[in-house]
């Protein structure tokens, strides 16, 4: 145990650099996936045939490709088409796109759960599609969307470790590098696991808060 604490004092500062990148990747891809997911979802419920079709196809393609392959594609293949991204940019874009499919399905479920009478009431006071979404549907859908959204946040935090496969030195990769140079696997990976857990706990509490709030109404 004493040895563990000794290792901890030595490795934590290095691992914290990885934590920083983990947070950057998670927040970046969370924002991107939210924006894209909302766009796909709104296209899907737009009632315009071609937009619905594009969105449905896109979601299925994205869902059908493993995140790691998507990351490889963006980081290793895109340069062949003249789009060279840094590893961090590629990670954020890759994870953001990958998760946009799940975000979209969650948003769509929330939007479609709103009573049709609400939309009709909005229409009868002269609201157009976008105003109806913004003032009537989305504010009510948020309550339904938030608990699963919190879960997606937790999954993204953990899946940000996949950025290590394209050389982003986030927490998992930082840990692997220390472990392979010191052979202190137990200490290092225990620390890494604890750090992921520590970052998840606020998110877990946030999800519970959302759920309580959703159940109250």
């Amino acid at each position: 145990m004493q040895k563990f604490f000794h290792d901890a004092i030595e490795f934590v500062p290095i691992l914290l650099q990885g934590v920083w990148l983990t947070i950057v990747v998670t927040i970046g891809s969370l924002l991107l996936s939210t924006v894209l997911g909302l766009i796909w979802a709104l296209m899907r419920v737009s009632g315009i045939g071609i937009l619905t079709g594009i969105s449905a196809a896109l979601i299925n393609v994205i869902r059908g490709i493993p995140i790691i392959v998507l990351l490889f594609y963006i980081y290793f293949v895109m340069p062949d088409f003249g789009i060279a991204l840094s590893a961090l940019q590629a990670a954020i874009i890759g994870l953001g796109i990958a998760y946009s499919a799940y975000q979209a399905e969650n948003f769509r479920a929330g939007i479609e759960a709103i009573d049709k009478g609400q939309i009709e009431a909005a229409q009868t006071i002269g609201m157009g599609w976008w105003l109806t979404m913004r003032r009537v549907v989305l504010p009510q859908a948020v309550r339904i969307i938030l608990p699963p959204y919190g879960n997606i946040m937790i999954m993204m935090l953990k899946d940000s470790s996949q950025a290590s496969t394209i050389t982003v030195a986030e927490l998992a990769l930082q840990g692997k590098l220390i472990a392979s140079s010191t052979f202190k696997n137990t200490s290092v990976f225990t620390l890494v696991a604890l750090m992921y857990l520590t970052m998840s706990i606020p998110l877990i509490l946030l999800v519970r808060h959302f759920e309580n709030k959703a159940n109250r109404k």
Partner: peptide, 17 residues
């Protein structure tokens, strides 16, 4: 839209926000 602002509707199930 213009017609709907001239002819309002009240629903059986109220449909308040």
């Amino acid at each position: 839209v213009a017609i709907r602002t001239q002819v309002s509707m009240v629903f059986q199930r109220f449909n308040l926000f």
